[in-house]
């Protein structure tokens, strides 16, 4: 399932919320849409599902208008909503019937999904009695009910406790094996864990489109990260004298030491630190992670 968005614009009254946004998601990809609150993540997702109309630009799924592809798309909104007077199973039956799933298949599918999202013991509970986390799981079940080939998940784990979050992450990892997934989140470690590709948004504009290879590719750059127990002003002076040190940068509570050859010089740096008995918390080869990229692009820009 392939999604193409080209030069999409959207404004609410006078305020432009999406500006010339283009995105191409290939079949089988799992893409994380990342951005601070108000960046336009939910608006983009709502335009893809057809809940909102774009002011200009094109959105197509497998080269067809989204309105003709509803059966292929599963959508979990940021705040899943249901007819709260319904029971869990009843709600899924209602949704399944809207997709015209045959009764027998639907019953079987509901059983599977309730087990997958951990609600098999709650199928007769009224939705109004469910906790926020349980509603989120039911929302995921509802989005996957018709076996969509393109799944859109808007902040799927934001309302969950750590245990629930872990379970949902595992669930998404399962579904991404045979489904194209677009998920939005502001929990960057989750995105990094689940997605293969990251699209970073700021003020409705695309500021970066990167993937795991780019991020992990930077792992072997020639930089060491040193976190000290106490701030030691001499470390900079000490290391600056070394010919193999190219640059020293202090970032938050760590020093980033750029050297000429990481494989060789990491032992030299360790030797100096041990000889001078400098207390450290952690020494590691620095790799730029998603958070660094995000902070760099979104906060500093």
């Amino acid at each position: 399932m392939e999604l193409v968005m080209q030069k999409v614009n959207k404004a609410f009254k006078e305020k432009k919320v999406i500006n010339n946004f283009s995105l191409h998601i290939h079949s089988g990809e799992c893409v994380g849409l990342i951005g601070p609150n108000g960046a336009g993540k939910s608006t983009i997702m709502k335009m893809i599902t057809g809940i909102l109309q774009q002011d200009s630009g094109m959105i197509k799924l497998n080269n067809k208008e989204m309105t003709k592809m509803k059966k292929a798309v599963g959508y979990l909104p940021q705040y899943p909503t249901f007819y709260e007077w319904m029971r869990v199973k009843e709600s899924l039956i209602f949704m399944g019937q809207l997709f015209e799933i045959p009764d027998k298949t639907l019953q079987q599918r509901i059983k599977e999904l309730l087990h997958t999202v951990g609600l098999e013991n709650n199928e007769e509970d009224r939705i109004v009695t469910l906790s926020g986390g349980m509603k989120q799981r039911l929302g995921i079940a509802q989005a996957l009910l018709h076996k969509p080939t393109f799944v859109i998940l808007d902040e799927p784990v934001s309302a969950l406790d750590p245990v629930g979050r872990r379970e949902i992450i595992q669930l998404i990892q399962q579904i991404k094996n045979n489904t194209t997934v677009l998920l939005s989140t502001h929990i960057l470690s989750d995105a990094e864990e689940i997605c293969d590709r990251f699209v970073i948004l700021k003020d409705g504009e695309l500021v970066a489109d990167t993937n795991n290879e780019d991020i992990f590719g930077s792992r072997f750059q020639n930089t060491l990260s040193i976190e000290l127990v106490n701030e030691d002003i001499y470390i900079e002076e000490l290391l600056n004298k070394q010919t193999y040190v190219k640059n020293i940068k202090k970032q938050h509570d760590r020093y980033l030491i750029e050297v000429t050859d990481i494989d060789k010089n990491k032992f030299d740096v360790m030797k100096i630190i041990n000889e001078k008995r400098i207390n450290y918390k952690k020494i590691e080869i620095y790799r730029e992670n998603l958070e660094d990229i995000f902070l760099n692009l979104v906060v500093k820009k």
Partner: peptide
């Protein structure tokens, strides 16, 4: 108001 219309219209309705 509660977003159910959006949910229903994302289905083939």
């Amino acid at each position: 108001k509660d977003g159910m219309l959006d949910i229903i219209l994302t289905k083939p309705v």
